[in-house]
Write a protein that binds this DNA or RNA. Sequence first.
DNA 1: CTTCCATATATTTTT
DNA 2: TATATGGAAG
Length: 765
Amino acid sequence: MSQYLETLNPAQREAVTTLRGPLLIVAGAGSGKTRVLTYRIAHLLENGIAPWNILALTFTNKAAREMKERIANVVGEKVAGQLWMGTFHSIFLRILRIEAETLGYSPTFSVYDTSASQGAIARIIKEMNLSTDDYAPRRIAARISMAKNNLVLPAQYLNEPLIAEQDSRSKIPRTGEIYEAYQQALRRASAMDFDDLLLQMTLLLGHYPEIRQRYQEKFAYILVDEYQDTNVVQNRILNQLAEQHHNLCVVGDDAQSIYAFRGAKIQNIIKFPSTYPELKMVKLETNYRSTGAIVEAANRLIAHNPNQIRKVCRASTDGGDDIEISTAFTDMEEANFVAQHIQTTALREKAQHGQFAILYRTNAQSRLLETGLRALNIPYRVYGGTSFYQRKEVQDLLAYFRLVVNPADEQALLRVINLPARGIGATTLAALAAGANAREVSLWDYLQDIERTAISLRAATLGAIVQFRELIKGFLGRVHTAEAYGLAEEIYRKSGLREALELDTTPEGESRVGNVGEVFNSIKEFSEAKVESGEADLVTLPMYLDEVSLLTDTDKEEEGENERVTLSTIHSAKGLEYDYVYVVGLEENIFPSRRASEEPGGLEEERRLCYVAVTRAAKHLTLTHALSRSTYGQSQRNPQSRFLGEIVPGYHAQGVEYLPANSSTGSSAWRGGTGRTAQNQRLNPSVAKPRGATAPAAINPSALREPATPPEQLSAGDSVLHPRFGRGEILELQQQGGDPRAIVQFINEPKPRTLVLRYAQLRKI
DNA sequence: CTTCCATATATTTTT
DNA sequence: TATATGGAAG
């Protein structure tokens, strides 16, 4: 027996060594799932299965990369590189590129990200003259995405009475038509959105038996990670591929299914046994990550969900710290408490900041937490949020690349045709779109003989269009032969994008230039990696685009990860673990969120989300809630989350009365010095042990009551105090125009702010 | 055609 | 409270 098998427990060993037939591995949190998957692949290889016959699918690039690395450690880089291992989307993209022509797509088809897809849908809604109040593009896009994820094509969508009824009740009866037009637009642009990468894949396998058979034979062994998060289409594809050999191994935990809102079907994992009656089921129930106290807390919580695959999770070690619960008066005090708690704990336990994570339900909650951490000089990083790749300047540049690779790409064309401003405005574009639509060709095709067809355009506008067309044409021929970096640079330069960006010397402008620089760095890194690994001799722009269009921020590794506290939504934290975890905002209407509790099954999903949050903690778990919280600028009071009582039976925030909602004068009224400002209890043993819990306020409130300095007495270089942002230095004063403004760098802010002096109430210090 | 200001709008989001 | 979007002025 191989050495690695000896390091596994019996259940893990069974999961690793059962090579043939359908296998369901129910893997509780922290049960060594990745280890099992890794060893299982190693074991397959050891038993003579060729790496190219193994398909291993994950949801995130990060998970794929991690597993690839770990397998490479066991079997070597060369063999690991030959595995078909990656995300659903990236693997299917790879296959769809090969088979594109069968489906009537160009092999250079574009991949639309969410914003491109929404843009295309918005265009159609406008062209159909529908009100964007009822037909909010976001909403329609979500509806279409849901349809695609559930394998409902436009024809079915239009014919399904149930859907028609739903849509007319929601006042969006023409959604089906939009869906149909959208799919046509995608084809004309030779583009697929994220959902299409799955949908077209299943259509390919469904409509072409010989192709299906080829892939069935090729992928004789299939492994799927996070199976509880698969949607209808993904599940269908898996069944299609596994039809012949039935060697389908899925790993998941129904208790951690948190993506139903994106179409994930928890039923896939629950019904897996009935799809494959001959299956073997293995339950991994030993949690090697968390202490007994944490595992028990998680078990108590999840026990409130009725629909589950039964399993009994046990900790590998008993005991551990009790779960800590803290009640704060306000969200700001909650944030300060957490920051303070982290500082004290890090000192006392000699723990690295990288071992701490603060988890919240919504991204908006990160702001106060950041302020709290900054006030104590605790380094942190915010996971997720606005992605690097969603920055305007980055998207603009990538749109140029996309257009050069696939000039039919309408969204890319629309994005850059007037960028930098060339005098091709909305009116002109509407005329062009009308012309293209009338002829049923892509915009790009329509531009080809625009000199003859567009009569109504002004000479200057026509000239600008022709010039742009020739600019793009100059790149087209070289896309597949030129090296990515050089071509990218040339595009950046010749398009005028570079000049336009570099002209802006404001701090924001400079950061934009920096971001573009990062893109170029990533092109270089990507190219070098591909050449070094021998995967390619020549790395072209299309290859880079395929990589980058399926990449998210979370995939980027950052410097100094170990020294920084992680701030993350619970969703983004799935799969990660930290010694010290703070789950904040445990209040009704926040967590569980109001919307979720209104939807059927929503509450259970929120509870699973909470389960995910709790099980991220290895050593110590702190739960916090605030009596009052400002949302959208308004103060709100929410009762404690029901989850608190489920985790710690009988828990009620004690010793604090609900205070009137925060008034405009600030919270200094109860910050005065006497009495505790927050209640903090250590539970179980049930004797509540209060302790002082509030961090020093970032800004001394009394200092702010002093009158502001009149604007005319301020000058650049002055140190000033702002009621909200605190201390800062004036970088520049702007007099031009109506209101005099000041650009101020605050010590607690990453970048300078521009303030209108009339309102800003700055005080010179 | 571009710029600016008012107004609306507001989960979670692996791809 | 921030941000996105759309209409009116430049």
